[in-house]
Write a protein that binds this DNA or RNA. Sequence first.
DNA 1: TTAGCGGGCGCG
DNA 2: AAAGCGCGCCCGCTAA
Length: 646
Amino acid sequence: MAEWNISTPTTEYYDHTSPDLHKIVAEVADTPEVAIDTETTGLTVWRDVPLYWSLAWGTRRMTLNVSALPYFEEVFRMPNKRWIFANAKYDTHILANVGVHIAGELADIQVQHALLYDDRSHSLKDINEELFGWRWADFQDTFGRITKKQSAEDRIRRAENENFPLLVEYAANDAWGTLQCYIELSKQLQNAPTHSLFRNSPPYIETLWDLYQKVEVPYTKVLWKNERNGVLIDEEYIAKIEPIARQEIQALEKAINREAGRVLNPNSTKQLQDYFFGKLQLQPLKMTKGGKSGVRNPSVDKGFLEHYAATVPMANHVLQHRSLTKLYGTYISGIKELMDPHGRIHTRYNQDVARTGRLSSADPNLQNIPKAEKDKWKLRGAFIAPKDRELIVADYEQLEMRLLACASLEPGMCEVIHKGWDIHMGNASMIFGYPYEEIKEAKRIEKEVKKGNLPENALTARMHECLIARDTVKTLGFALIYGMGPDKLARALKITRAEAEAKIVLFNDKYPAIEQYAQDAVRETMETGYAFTVLGRRRNLPQIASHRKDERMQAERQARNTPIQGSAADVVKMAQLVLDQLGLDVRYDCHSQMQVHDELMHECPKEGTEFLKAEIKMFMECPFSEHLAVPLAVDAGSGHSWLEAK
DNA sequence: TTAGCGGGCGCG
DNA sequence: AAAGCGCGCCCGCTAA
């Protein structure tokens, strides 16, 4: 009858009154690997609690009432157990909310699945369908849709009364499906050989199982701690900005309506297109992609608006309106709902979404908060340390460039790094021939002029040339390895296409190993089907053999980029693991609370700041040190807020 | 009323 | 003919 390739034993049910409960507790205590899942009041990790939970091992599957949870407390404290989850961080937050802390290992089938099949969905139900052809009704189909009026708790409570067996079956399916996936995916990981991007690679990664078990499993707990700690938000700071921001936005909207002579919503792409290209008959600079319908329209993006900002008042107004409303919606009016009762926000770090192995961050996304230079309200100033504590912010200096040097072994670039030169100034010197000291001096003078300590004319024409060379080479480096075309490069550098092409030729002439690396990366991906990182993480790129040229070219650019971006992610990940293993939290009350790709933020007692800053810097610089052709460098600062610490 | 998509844009 | 990569969020628009 069943179409799926999986058996589903009869489901057991227990609560605190079940006479056999002590037997189950004893059995779980004797079982080394147990799958577990929770059904909860909602999805907010710092607030919601379990209502039911389910277990599966061997041929047993059961749903338990939350009232049975306390009887397992000792079992959860046992250190040598492996608890198998689908999205381990979520369930362990929910359990921690009722005082249950898991000492054993946190296995996660979503993380496993992401290592093997980076380009597919990693949700529990999708994985089961993919592996076994087994799909059971999801939460919504079982309990009804969660809306503003009907919470997850409401839905489950109703099922409790109306169709209890259905609830019991649903919860047990989740744990059972998780267990079956774990068994299958573990096998597949063990049978998946991999290798490092570098020949002199870390020797401890031979299969994807090694990567999973040695890196990703402990990393889940590190992320859990980061999420749990959260970051303190200065509520007064936000409250002070809010009315000012709202007023500025309203003033701009008034100006826009006056200019248009009617009500014009500046957030509407369509209305803007009508205005600029219909009413004003402006010349489009480029077209949008067209999307599903394939209808390409003239773009009203930032580039277009900036082009007309000086001559068309509306363009200038819309430009300002965009940057203000973006910040307001996301970080001023939006952030309050995400704060816990102690004023902290708890972002979710997603370990299995970015194809390169990077993290992503959501609710809120802490990885795209504006930099201070661009942000008139200085939102980073709202991220603070509590009284008597301090924030330490440490970030890698040009991590991707250093890894590119390692991957390409380009002698010029390696030399620049070994000399301890600033990478972009050094590269500019190597490629355009200006003496390094002269570029450095030009940069110094520029800084003084900007500060107002020196007059404008302190910057000579020659110095100006030096600075242009430095900016050019910085853009060139990123552009070329990732496959940017000469057209876009010309636009980025504000030069002609012919000039851009000449600069590309010069760059490749002086740094030939860079383009060689890129070609090797593409060739390896064509041969193996994968792009590899330093830890042997691999990204499936089947489109590299596509007969469609645009698809193939995109895959080629991804094949160039992934080893660098992914290896950078590996480095930071290893650094976080090392810092966690040092036990800075238990030994010095110093807690990691944020990762922004190449930057880590810790919160510590004020008096420990200087020591801990040095400690963090040292251990961030050490991952893979014996395997890399050039050293890594970390810049660490501290302060009361994110703004001050940088 | 809601879901999904696309445009646009912030970060590294 | 045209070509950086990787994310998440806001908004408007459209379909159901």
